[in-house]
């Protein structure tokens, strides 16, 4: 008996990303884009955007503790073992779809948050009297920036790959908060 619950034929919709998750995600994305490509690294706008990004990341991390089930650390614990198992499952043709981050995506989320924290903290340090002009701080800031660019590329690539593999429009899920999962795929 087919009780279709709306959306594309043959797809079940799951509400996965709450509005706070989506706003902080796109806010951070916008901030990174601004500071990587548009603002003058020596200017105050660069600093202010950096503070906003730091605030958004801290808020998102707080939400990982007090937020709803899907947004919490518990829904996507950082586990290299789980990530390896996920890779094996993919190679073995497993068709299941993860409702929160898949284990590989979870590692990427932690990586992005850590990198952004390192970038913000070294960025703030460069503006203080005590660390102004200290070389290693600038080097860490530069290195973190390079790593962030690599990570963003991997993140976008990973999203597109998973979208292709599972048929779940992930970018859309980060916009309207819902994952549309084909009926014949089990969810985890």
């Amino acid at each position: 008996m087919s009780m279709n619950s709306g959306g594309r034929p043959g797809a079940r919709k799951y509400r996965v990303w709450d509005p706070l998750v989506r706003i902080t995600h796109w806010g951070v994305a916008l901030g990174v884009l601004l500071n990587a490509a548009l603002t003058d690294p020596e200017g105050t706008l660069h600093e202010q955007v950096g503070y906003v990004v730091l605030g958004l990341v801290v808020l998102r991390l707080l939400w990982c503790i007090v937020g709803p089930r899907m947004a919490r650390f518990a829904a996507f614990p950082p586990s290299p073992a789980a990530a390896l198992a996920h890779v094996r499952d993919m190679l073995g043709g497993d068709r299941a779809v993860h409702l929160s981050h898949n284990p590989l995506g979870a590692l990427m989320a932690y990586n992005l948050w850590l990198t952004l924290l390192v970038l913000s903290i070294t960025g703030i340090m460069m503006g203080t009297v005590a660390f102004f002009g200290v070389e290693w701080v600038e080097e860490v800031h530069e290195a973190a920036y390079g790593w962030l660019m690599v990570s963003v590329a991997l993140h976008v690539g990973g999203v597109l790959f998973d979208q292709w593999r599972t048929g779940v429009p992930l970018v859309r899920a980060m916009i309207d908060g819902r994952k549309a999962v084909a009926r014949d795929r089990p969810v985890k």
Binding site: R22, I23, G55, L56, L59
Partner: peptide
Amino acid sequence: LAWMVVIQALCAL
């Protein structure tokens, strides 16, 4: 509510 939380968090910061 989510927008309020984000904006007020930034204001507090």
